[in-house]
Every structure is written in structure tokens, then in C-alpha cells.
Amino acid sequence: MKKTLSSLPLLTVNAGPRDGDKWKDRLKEEYTALIKYIQIGKENDSDWFQIESNKEGTVWTGKVWYIYEMKKYEFDLKFDIPVSYPATAPELMLPELDGKTAKMYRGGKICLTVHFNPLWQRNVPKFGIAHAMALGMGPWLAAEIPDLVQASFLSPMELNDLLTGIQGADPTCSRQEVEGWQGESVDVLVSF
């Protein structure tokens, strides 16, 4: 984790969505950092989220997943860039988990107040979305998902079992195919 973090580039531009061109520069840096993070994840077999933004880079959506006891748990991710960004950290949301755990604000905003926010404050403007994912979302999932699973609030992704089954039976079946299928039906498959 530390190694991953140190390999992520730190951001330099201190600009929010209302800062015009400067925000574009900032956005570029955000993307570069995210691309780097994803690449590292892919190389180390520790890939754990997908993300994309709108054209302006103010609204971000994607998916996060967590594998616990050989089962994959996957959730939608959604957040907006606050007006005061980067002085204020983005409020990462997992809407599906709203009401399932105490470590969460209304609307599925995960609770990062205690650990992550002070860290962020200290690192304005060096930290960006990639850092928020690595230092905020990652640890939150690692801490919360096992609890939720044990409390039987979550059921694993059946598709994951299916996927392993397909791959085991027919190694030629490419992952893309499965994933493509998975991507379409993910809402249905994740049941609560």
C-alpha cells in the first residue's frame, strides 16, 4: 500500500472546478494519477475499482469491488467534485450501502472524517481523486465489508461464482466477454 502510494504522482495545481483553465490543468493531473494507479493495480493483480467522469470532470461514477473469502462484492461508486475542491475532499458515495452501516452519512457518503480528512487537509493540493480512492475508499472497504458480510447484510456477487465457473470450464472464454456481460447486468445481480 505504501509502495503503491509512493509511486502515485503528487498533484501540483491548486484549482477547483470554477477555476477555468486551471481546473483543466488540475483535471489532467487527476487523470494522469488515476491512470498510473490503475496501471499499477493491473500489473500487481490488485485492481479494485473502475471510474469515469463527465466531460467537465465534476461528476464521477464507477464501480468498486472487494474480494472477501473468495467472493467478490461489488458496489456502484458516485461522487461530485465539491466547489471548494481541492481544499475540501470529495465525498465518496456508495449509494447501495445506504442504511446498512453506521460508518456512513445519509445518501451513502462513506465516513472518512476521522482518519482520511485530516490527512487530506495536510496534503492540499498534492492529493487528488486517486489518493482519495487509495487512502479513503480502499481502507474503508477493507474495514467495513467483512463486518457487513458477517452480519449477513451483503450477499456476494453470484456472477463472480459464475465467472469462475466459466473460466474453469473453458479457459478460452475471454475475460472481456464475461466482463462485458457483467457490466450490463451488474445492477440486477447485486442483491440486498
Partner: peptide, 23 residues
Amino acid sequence: MDEIEALQALLGAVQKQETRPRL
């Protein structure tokens, strides 16, 4: 803006890359 689009596309492409399985 193009650059950002390019980067968006790159991010998408990177995300679609196959994860290198690792033991």
C-alpha cells in the same frame, strides 16, 4: 479539452486492460 478527452480515453483503455494475474 482535447487533452482531457485523450486522457479520459486513456483511462478507459487502461481500465479495460486485462489484469495481469499474479500469484
